[in-house]
Amino acid sequence: MLAFISRRLLQSVFVMLAVSLIAFTLFRFVGDPVAQMVGQETSVADQERIRDSLGLNDPITTQFVSFVSDLITGNFGFSYRTRQPISEMILSRMPATIELGIVSLLISLLIGVPAGIYTALHRGGAIANTILVTTLIGISIPTFVIGIFLIFIFGVQLGWLPTFGRGDVVTIGWWQTNFLTIDGWRSLLLPALTLGVYQLTLTMRLVRSEMQDVMKTDFIKFARARGINRHSIHYNHALRNTMVPVITIIGLQFGGVIAFSIVTESVFQWPGMGLLFLDSIRYVDIPVMSVYLVLIALMFVVINLIVDLLYAVIDPRVRTGATH
């Protein structure tokens, strides 16, 4: 068990190093950092001095090591475009993205999992089929189109809900939250729905297919042959086994939420990290791009570690260190 976790930790460190290397390569070799920082009129000698003071003339390995240690200590450098410290930029944008992500993930899980179970257990039923067709259309509509449709209906035609920005927020320390005002919730609703719908359909389809597979296993047949009641077969025996693969995918979906938050934030002008990243791409603001990249990978790795721990909770084969 401990060995399992420590091996996963090692793998995570590897992934993080690889992503840091990509970020470093981006930062160091895509365009000239010095040329980006100084104006046209700076002399070559001055540029060379800056280059030296930034350590850009050190051996590449030394540069990489100091790049990584800077990242670890939270020293993310400055944006080419705004000249602000990147850490500040990210910190001010992070709460918006996290709150949006959490709400949409909750929407996706709270509706997706029960709907998946229902369609798996009522295969061929009218309601189940309707849900299925709906989800097929659901995964086929690009996030931004969903957003536009929602804006068109609730913002333009009905005028019920705000269609851009975070609305009224409450500031607690450095964290600005939508959760404490009515206007905040109203502003959050459309973006969260937009982001949640795609994940919801994915969750539902996954839970459904895994549950269907489990329902066909011998141990479920045996449980039925022993006369175990239907409720227990579905929710104790089958659901537990369904959860093992589903947890993995939910972990991955968190990544999907982050990725598509870029799109959602763009549609609703939601001032989060995604919008920041999009600007950095549009203006080739390499330092911001590379830091965003590393942070996203870190989030992923942490979530995957949590998923592994959950595995151990659910599956005794992992817990007791059995060789499958």
Partner: peptide, 26 residues
């Protein structure tokens, strides 16, 4: 598979955006 792991930790849309960003830089 390790490369795939790294790739998986970057969602498709992010990868595409990133490559596009690099191309703009180069």
């Amino acid at each position: 598979m390790r490369i795939a792991d790294v790739q998986l930790s970057l969602p498709a849309i992010l990868t595409a955006l990133l490559i596009d960003g690099i191309a703009r830089g180069i």
